[in-house]
Write a protein that binds this DNA or RNA. Sequence first.
DNA 1: GCAAAAGTGTTGTAACTACACCCATGA
DNA 2: TCATGGGTGTAGTTACAACACTTTTGC
Lengths: 253, 253
Amino acid sequence: MPYDPSAFPPFAVTVDLVVLTVRRHALCALAVRRGEQPFQGRWALPGGFVREDEDLAAAAARELVEETGLLAHDPTLPAPPNGAHLEQLATYGDPERDPRMRVVSVAHLALAPDLPAPRAGGDANSARWAPVESLLDQENAYGREIGHGEPLAFDHDRILADGVERARSKIEYSSLATAFCPGEFTVGELRRVYEAVWGVALDPRNFHRKVTGTPGFLVPTGGTTTRQGGRPAQLFRAGGATVLNPPMLRPDV
Amino acid sequence: MPYDPSAFPPFAVTVDLVVLTVRRHALCALAVRRGEQPFQGRWALPGGFVREDEDLAAAAARELVEETGLLAHDPTLPAPPNGAHLEQLATYGDPERDPRMRVVSVAHLALAPDLPAPRAGGDANSARWAPVESLLDQENAYGREIGHGEPLAFDHDRILADGVERARSKIEYSSLATAFCPGEFTVGELRRVYEAVWGVALDPRNFHRKVTGTPGFLVPTGGTTTRQGGRPAQLFRAGGATVLNPPMLRPDV
DNA sequence: GCAAAAGTGTTGTAACTACACCCATGA
DNA sequence: TCATGGGTGTAGTTACAACACTTTTGC
């Protein structure tokens, strides 16, 4: 029983991705350069049309693989090592958001460990990691490498800001911060993730007690490493816990 | 520069509403009876197609007025008296979710104070408030007034469950519970909202200290009431605070 | 007076902040 | 030996649960 297409307005549906990672102690997002109109040459979030018989989550996972090579995992489970966490963020459907036509975009948020380099057909000029601060802060935009003060294409500034805010609040009460870490990591490396995402300094001693004392958050692998220098640190991997109770406390706010 | 319509698959886009309220000490959702195929005669969430030049939030607000007469307010502000809180919930786009065609539904969550009665063209048999427990609990479904064990139409069971979960967690750390209350209310009435939404009993004495001690949550109006019996209680209205810090603590969980 | 709901006081405990201090490695 | 980061101990504080207890109304 197909519907009369004149009974409802047709929409295009896309997925856009906010892919976040922590590089060199800064929270970074994946940006791609647009090759076509509109906003040709401007930076944008990766994304694309949802296919005819494709679920929204499947479309987001497909785009994620195309842009980063990362596999996504079930968001109800804790992030496994070296896979990305992927979850739906929000949907944006302002009638004016795309000048060509009516497009509704279902934005997704992905959290990834630090990667060698982005890939977008191997073209280094068309995809890169940029600190979210430089992408979003249009006031102090002069002299920065990406964007040069230009906003992102479409409403992607707002989508990126929403994704960053979601990540910042979600690592408070969930174990999601481990999705930014490689398969095995130290407490110090996890702390630097929190510091980069929140933009604050945390007391290393209290942080250590807190995360090792929360049941199911971290499980020791038995190994140690000195890759950060100093005294050898225990290696951990993410435990089964997905929700942190009590939560990590973000200073001030 | 219109787009080539053959370059992307056309979708229908709808908004569906999870409208929650507290009646007779139970968390209730608005359900409407479907008058047409598919799922004719089954209960469903209210909703409808997004119009040609309509924003998603505007479509949700329009549906809310049509079904309840309630005006929606800016979700970034605290809920004003006798208006509904409305926020985007999530988007559902399984290719099989509507047997007729490809439909993507942007679900919204609305929280409303107790209303006289729902209105759907004045037809009392086609729209009503039902306890969410009876709508969702398909195990113990015998003997209940609505649904009689039948799931809701489409994937509305899942949408309703997601909306209820959102409401349950959001009243922990925001002042949203006041959206379930009339313009002026007592601490005891607010406590009964929490008890109904969470399905737990709270200590009235600690609750009172907690909510009156959180700056900006409640502001006294000066009046008192004895409508609940017993000693006269102070009347309050919602304060300017939208985020509760420290949060209300939900027992167990 | 009695029931019912509002509101206050108190005590023990969990969990946090802030900081002093020690440990194990590489250079 | 020193610098560097890893990890433990301890004291003061906040916020909470779990009560006992008092207050003010309607009946």
